[in-house]
Amino acid sequence: MPLRLIIIFVVIIFLQVFFFNAISLFDMAYAFVYVMVLLLLPLDWNFKILITVAFLIGLLLDFTNLKLGIHAFTSTLIVTIRSWWIDIITPQINPVEKPNFKPYTQSLSWIVSYFTPLVFLYALIYHILSDLHFSLNTFWKFFMTGFYSDILILIIFALFIRTSDKR
């Protein structure tokens, strides 16, 4: 993984803790931009290291949000699921070449189909775990959080990650 990308990831997590956590809309839509970091972690990493990193990033956010365990649970789950999701949306990938597959080098349309469902899934699991039930209010929170986070993630990806890769 390029050093530049590592720095961007660290900055995004830092911003998540100190900035994005504070800019929720109407206390309904939360900006979970750091999910992008989870989804862009290299596919060639050992599975245990991968989920441990995801777990620790989630736990860091939990400590800052005072909702211990929810981000850690959801992050670990999303990182586990993402590999299967890539198989579904990109059936042409050869299993041997899959570890070298770099999501951040793909087209914007592929990125949208990769990020959007997983970001919405993240929002859904997060809000169900937060509320411990599923009501209309939970549905709106999930929908708005998913939408809000997805838009921010796509903008940041298009502005900083994809362009920087082209360079």
Binding site: K48, I51, L68, G69, I70, A72, F73, L129, L132
Partner: peptide, 27 residues
């Protein structure tokens, strides 16, 4: 072992959720 490690991490997360959050603890 990968799956068991995944379950282990999720179990820790759930333990945190239901032991360190007042609302979840109550529910």
């Amino acid at each position: 072992n990968n799956f068991l490690y995944f379950i282990f991490l999720q179990w820790i997360a759930l333990y945190f959720i239901f032991n360190f959050n007042d609302f979840h603890k109550e529910v």
